[in-house]
Deep mutational scan, measured.
Amino acid sequence: MQRVNMIMAESPGLITICLLGYLLSAECTVFLDHENANKILNRPKRYNSGKLEEFVQGNLERECMEEKCSFEEAREVFENTERTTEFWKQYVDGDQCESNPCLNGGSCKDDINSYECWCPFGFEGKNCELDVTCNIKNGRCEQFCKNSADNKVVCSCTEGYRLAENQKSCEPAVPFPCGRVSVSQTSKLTRAETVFPDVDYVNSTEAETILDNITQSTQSFNDFTRVVGGEDAKPGQFPWQVVLNGKVDAFCGGSIVNEKWIVTAAHCVETGVKITVVAGEHNIEETEHTEQKRNVIRIIPHHNYNAAINKYNHDIALLELDEPLVLNSYVTPICIADKEYTNIFLKFGSGYVSGWGRVFHKGRSALVLQYLRVPLVDRATCLRSTKFTIYNNMFCAGFHEGGRDSCQGDSGGPHVTEVEGTSFLTGIISWGEECAMKGKYGIYTKVSRYVNWIKEKTKLT
């Protein structure tokens, strides 16, 4: 034993070699072989497995989906700052455009905790909710729209109204504003409101030439003092309507412009014939205590009207009353817009006519005020429907199939267009061939041609 100890002390290297040989010859039971080890760690190889990531292109799944990435790591994937920024906006807080917040056709661009709407022409605001041009839906104005110097929408209202708090709607500024039905039992019968379409306001006024200088022999019209197929109006439903009495009662109609003036057809009036105007009328054979009678003290036909040349060209006249009318729910003026808007309103496509005229061709006159909704007829169809001249200051309205029309005794009465609950004068009943005849239409004086003249002559002093 002493000898062994001496050998170990003198030859430590020998001992180490012996131990190493023993270990190498022993069977290893701690580690699995290569094949079995792979069965336990069965993990798919990654895209760049075996390579240094710093030297390969980034992978979106590896960089940002398996674990949260930084902007720089995302930049490695896209290799483009702009594309990385677009991805980053949604990656950080989701897609803010998912709810489609942009209105009126706006395009949404996502941002971090926010979004941006790219608005089409005519709109602005956070969600493109603000109209900035009158060309689109009248700028959301209830009545009139004008573009300011910086191309912003400025709404306005006709006389007797003021802008509401929203700067879009119009509200009454006087007790009985024009064009409004205020009798409670008839307010439910107000005709369907007309909503502004998209309009090209630059070209809204037709490029028409008034044929002022045409000389033409007097034409022989049949029954051209021209509501057939209409309905009984309720008291106060058309408070701007008046009836004219002269040699015979209810020979023509008219509309209240203001307390002192009536507008009617020029062919209705004769110099030297006494005319009485009755406002607030409903049943011409009954006294309903809503009527107001006034005498006409002055007749002003349009300066281009000449019955000797043509009885229905420039067929418009103004009547001055001896005493002002007292405005109330049964006696209310009709609204008159400017030339541009009167023309736009007419193009809405349908209007209402009213009167006490004959209820059928050569038949009896109506006792109760009649009204009828009539569609506008395109000019080409209008011209083809008659052998008589249709001037540019006239328009056609009615039904091709016949059966409904204005008729004798309705002449001078109103053709009105309702705009968001307020009625505007767009025409004056003038003439036609018979009444409600198939293929024939009622012919009306186009008020847009005469609004400046009306307003100039009827100013209240």
Rank of each mutant, 00 (worst) to 15 (best):
E10S: 14
E10G: 13
P12G: 13
P12R: 10
G13T: 15
I15Y: 11
L19Y: 10
Y22G: 09
Y22C: 13
L24P: 02
A26M: 10
A26I: 13
V30L: 13
L32I: 14
D33R: 10
E35A: 12
E35K: 11
K39C: 04
L41P: 03
P44N: 13
K45T: 03
R46C: 00
N48A: 03
S49V: 06
E54K: 01
V56N: 03
N59S: 09
E61S: 03
R62E: 00
E67G: 00
F71A: 03
F71K: 05
E76C: 01
F78G: 03
F78V: 04
T81K: 11
E82M: 05
T84N: 03
T85Y: 08
W88S: 03
D93N: 14
Q96R: 14
C97D: 03
C102F: 01
L103S: 12
L103H: 13
G106P: 03
E116D: 13
C117V: 02
W118N: 14
C119G: 03
G122S: 08
F123Y: 13
G125M: 02
N127G: 05
E129H: 09
E129L: 03
T133P: 10
N135L: 12
Q143D: 00
F144G: 02
C145M: 03
N147W: 13
D150T: 12
K152Q: 09
C157W: 00
E159P: 07
G160R: 02
Y161Q: 03
A164M: 13
N166P: 02
K168S: 05
V174K: 07
P175W: 04
F176P: 00
F176H: 10
C178D: 01
S182H: 09
V183A: 14
V183D: 08
T186H: 11
S187R: 11
K188C: 06
T190C: 06
T190M: 05
T190W: 12
E193T: 10
V195S: 14
P197L: 10
V199R: 13
V199A: 05
D200T: 07
V202T: 14
T209G: 14
F221L: 13
F221K: 12
G230L: 14
A233S: 09
K234G: 10
P235H: 07
P235Q: 09
F238N: 03
P239V: 02
Q241R: 06
N245L: 08
V248I: 15
D249A: 09
G254K: 00
T287L: 14
E288S: 11
I297C: 05
P301A: 09
P301H: 08
H302Q: 04
H303S: 07
A308F: 09
I309Q: 12
Y312W: 11
I316D: 00
I316G: 00
E320Y: 03
D322A: 07
V326C: 07
V326S: 12
S329L: 04
K339F: 07
E340S: 07
Y341F: 11
T342C: 04
T342P: 01
F348C: 07
G349Q: 05
A366D: 14
L367W: 13
V368H: 11
L369E: 06
V374N: 02
V374D: 01
P375D: 12
P375Q: 12
D378W: 03
D378G: 07
T381A: 11
R384H: 10
S385P: 04
T389W: 09
I390A: 08
Y391V: 06
E401G: 10
R404N: 06
C407Y: 05
Q408L: 12
Q408D: 15
G409D: 06
G412W: 10
G412F: 07
H415N: 01
V416A: 09
T417E: 00
G421R: 08
G421T: 06
S423Y: 15
L425C: 00
T426M: 01
S430F: 04
M437I: 13
K440G: 14
G442L: 07
K446Y: 02
V447D: 00
Y450P: 01
W453I: 01
K455A: 06
T458V: 06
